[in-house]
Measured scan of single mutants.
Amino acid sequence: HNLTITQGKLFFHYNPKLCLSEIHKMEEVSGTKGRQERNDIALKTNGDQASCENELLKFSYIRTSFDKILLRWEPYWPPDFRDLLGFMLFYKEAPYQNVTEFDGQDACGSNSWTVVDIDPPLRSNDPKSQNHPGWLMRGLKPWTQYAIFVKTLVTFSDERRTYGAKSDIIYVQTDATNPSVPLDPISVSNSSSQIILKWKPPSDPNGNITHYLVFWERQAEDSELFELDYCLKGLKLPSRTWSPPFESEDSQKHNQSEYEDSAGECCSCPKTDSQILKELEESSFRKTFEDYLHNVVFVPRKTSSGTGAEDPRPSRKRRSLGDVGNVTVAVPTVAAFPNTSSTSVPTSPEEHRPFEKVVNKESLVISGLRHFTGYRIELQACNQDTPEERCSVAAYVSARTMPEAKADDIVGPVTHEIFENNVVHLMWQEPKEPNGLIVLYEVSYRRYGDEELHLCVSRKHFALERGCRLRGLSPGNYSVRIRATSLAGNGSWTEPTYFYVTDYLDVPSNIA
């Protein structure tokens, strides 16, 4: 807008934040220059609390790290170098490059900038070799853009010569660093050979998330399962459950009422301010606690030095998902009996873990797994792929695949051998790939016309006998059925096997 004052003059007093240069501009645009008398524009009460600059400061050096910015700028000295009290560095987070010096300023003089007072450097006698002032900004957020400017702080001049310097606002972004852990990993099994893994992005990506790394490792069953005799009275049979499938998407929606109208769909109840505040506090606490764990609990591995020492970490090797089922080394339970199943799973520490690289999504279907087997899954978020990966501390989750139908069934015939004193040795093959492992066998036998009897055969007993022995049988026709019990439950009964026990007292003698 054009402003013209045809008559009258300007009068400025007691404006401590208004620089004289701005008042002189007002004289020019209003056409009143030359009308004012000496005392109409006070030299001592206008701009006496402001830094009124008329020179431009330029930054000469900028260096960044993930949490620091090192700045240096060209030296500046007023005509009387004693008038320079120091520099004021202003900075704040700036997602967009549209910041002005006066953003967030209120009537009390406060604003949204963080201000650092910096002492002037030592003055050199040689004007050509003056030290460049600077400042190291610490405690910054990774991968965050900051708006920065600097200006001088000078003393009051009796001659009211307006001098000083100020830089333009520059924008500097800190470097990326390792992201925080992925949030809320959930693993479920939808079949006997697959596990579905879902997660949420890290709360602090500290860069642009480029991919996720998912490692999985087959877990050995508890050692007590191999040692305890679950045929003993009072000892509860062990059981394991597989990871249940995901709930429906509708039930997972946030901010939804727990109660549904019987007449149909209901609208979600909005969260109160107290609920939102509580969630923010919980989120802040979780982030602080995660940072504490990362800094205190997890110790970084030592990389190899120039002395030739090897990095103890196993090298990563990509495998196809079809090879995942046989990740671990199978060892027989008892070496003397080769027909026992290889369900003991000690994992070799030198073995390469299978892994998958996930790009542009937060889910993965891990296939080719062994049925009813526990897996430990390790999830890392990465925001750099080359020249070397920059990934987060791992988040861990466990899951067990679903049982395989008929995996616990005894394959092959049940054979028998009759000894003296009416002892019958029953023999059968253990299931080759049971659900988890076989903890015991149930032997059901009966003599024709009598009630059915049951015998429990422990895992250890089966390994020693290759089956079991029935003792003290009365003469007669017998039928026997056997079924295995694994961590997933009972298998199917075998087809009945028949044998006849004679009275050993009636056996004919070869003595003449």
Rank of each mutant, 00 (worst) to 15 (best):
I438A: 06
T241K: 11
L426A: 01
E282R: 11
D323T: 13
T373V: 14
L426S: 02
V397D: 13
E290M: 08
G472L: 08
F499S: 01
P205L: 10
T272Y: 12
I276V: 05
Q252N: 02
A463Y: 04
A512V: 03
S257A: 13
R469F: 15
L321V: 09
T347E: 13
K460Y: 06
I482P: 00
N435Y: 00
F298H: 08
T343Y: 07
C266R: 10
Q380P: 00
S268L: 12
I418Y: 10
T373I: 10
G207H: 04
S262W: 06
R483A: 09
L470K: 00
Y498S: 13
I438T: 13
K271E: 13
I276D: 03
L225A: 05
A309K: 14
S243L: 07
F337L: 12
E356G: 09
E430V: 10
P332F: 04
V480L: 04
V359F: 04
K233Y: 12
E247N: 14
P475T: 09
G412L: 10
D503E: 10
F285Y: 10
K460R: 09
P475W: 12
V297P: 06
G476M: 00
G368R: 11
L232C: 15
D409P: 02
S268C: 08
T386W: 08
G306N: 13
N383Y: 02
N383R: 07
F246C: 07
T497V: 12
R481S: 04
K271V: 03
P338L: 06
E465M: 02
R459T: 08
S342L: 09
S251K: 14
Y478V: 01
S342R: 14
C468R: 03
Y504I: 09
N255K: 12
H352F: 08
S305V: 12
V423M: 05
V393L: 11
L505G: 09
V443A: 07
D222K: 11
F215I: 04
G472M: 06
E281P: 03
N421Q: 12
R319D: 08
S341H: 06
H416M: 10
G306K: 13
E260S: 10
G476C: 00
E388W: 06
C468K: 08
P300M: 14
F499L: 14
V296R: 07
T307P: 10
G491F: 02
P238N: 11
H254E: 03
T333L: 09
Y448H: 04
Y441A: 00
T272N: 10
R447K: 07
D250F: 13
G449I: 11
S305R: 06
L473D: 00
D229I: 08
P508R: 11
S251M: 15
F372T: 03
R301M: 07
N490T: 11
E290G: 11
V365R: 09
F372S: 12
S283D: 08
C269Y: 08
S398Q: 06
E281W: 02
L237S: 12
R390E: 02
V327D: 12
E281T: 03
A394I: 02
P354K: 07
G489D: 04
A335G: 08
V480Y: 07
V414E: 01
W493P: 01
L225S: 07
A407H: 15
T497H: 06
E420V: 03
D229V: 06
T288K: 14
G436D: 12
A220P: 10
P332H: 04
T333N: 12
E224I: 05
R240P: 08
R316Q: 10
S320V: 11
I410T: 03
V457K: 13
I482V: 10
D291N: 12
I377C: 07
V331I: 13
L225G: 03
D506I: 09
T373M: 08
S305L: 08
G234L: 10
T272A: 15
G234H: 04
L487N: 14
P245N: 09
S284P: 02
D261T: 13
E350L: 12
E433S: 14
T415V: 10
I276T: 13
R447S: 05
D311T: 10
S304C: 03
V334Y: 08
E224A: 10
F215W: 01
A263F: 06
H425F: 08
V324C: 07
G207I: 04
I438M: 12
E465K: 03
T386A: 12
P434K: 03
D273R: 11
E404M: 15
S344Y: 10
L280T: 11
P431N: 02
E388D: 12
T347L: 14
V299S: 11
N421I: 15
L232F: 12
S268R: 15
P238V: 03
V324D: 05
P300V: 10
Y212S: 06
N208Y: 11
I209R: 15
G234V: 13
K278M: 07
R447H: 09
R353K: 10
T288M: 13
N490Y: 10
D323N: 07
S342F: 15
S486Y: 01
N383D: 07
M402Y: 04
R316V: 04
G449D: 11
L228G: 12
G234W: 07
A335H: 09
E265S: 09
Q380D: 11
W216P: 05
V457Y: 11
G207K: 02
Y441K: 00
E465S: 13
P300R: 03
Q275C: 06
E356Y: 09
S239K: 13
T373H: 08
D222E: 08
V331R: 07
E265T: 12
P475D: 04
E356Q: 08
H416R: 03
Y259F: 06
V296G: 04
V443H: 00
V214P: 00
S243E: 04
Y292D: 13
E290C: 03
R353D: 15
T485I: 08
C231H: 01
R319T: 11
Q219V: 14
I438S: 04
K406H: 06
A263M: 11
Q380F: 15
F419Q: 10
V423D: 08
P387H: 03
P387Q: 13
S492P: 05
P338Y: 10
F246Q: 12
D291S: 09
L237F: 05
S363D: 13
Y212L: 02
R319Q: 02
S283R: 15
V214F: 01
D311C: 04
H254M: 13
K271H: 13
H211I: 01
V443G: 00
V297G: 14
F285N: 10
Q256H: 11
C231P: 02
L470M: 08
V501N: 03
K357F: 13
N383Q: 07
D204W: 09
Y292V: 06
V439P: 04
D250M: 12
A394F: 06
T307S: 11
D273L: 05
N510A: 14
A381P: 01
T497Q: 12
S486G: 05
T494P: 01
E279H: 07
S458H: 08
R318I: 15
G207W: 01
Y445N: 02
N326V: 05
N208R: 04
M427E: 15
G472V: 10
V480R: 01
H254V: 06
S223G: 02
D291H: 13
V327R: 08
P238M: 04
Q219A: 03
V214N: 01
T303I: 06
G368W: 06
S348R: 15
F298V: 12
A309D: 15
N422M: 05
E452Y: 04
H294G: 15
Y259S: 12
R318M: 05
S268Q: 08
P244V: 10
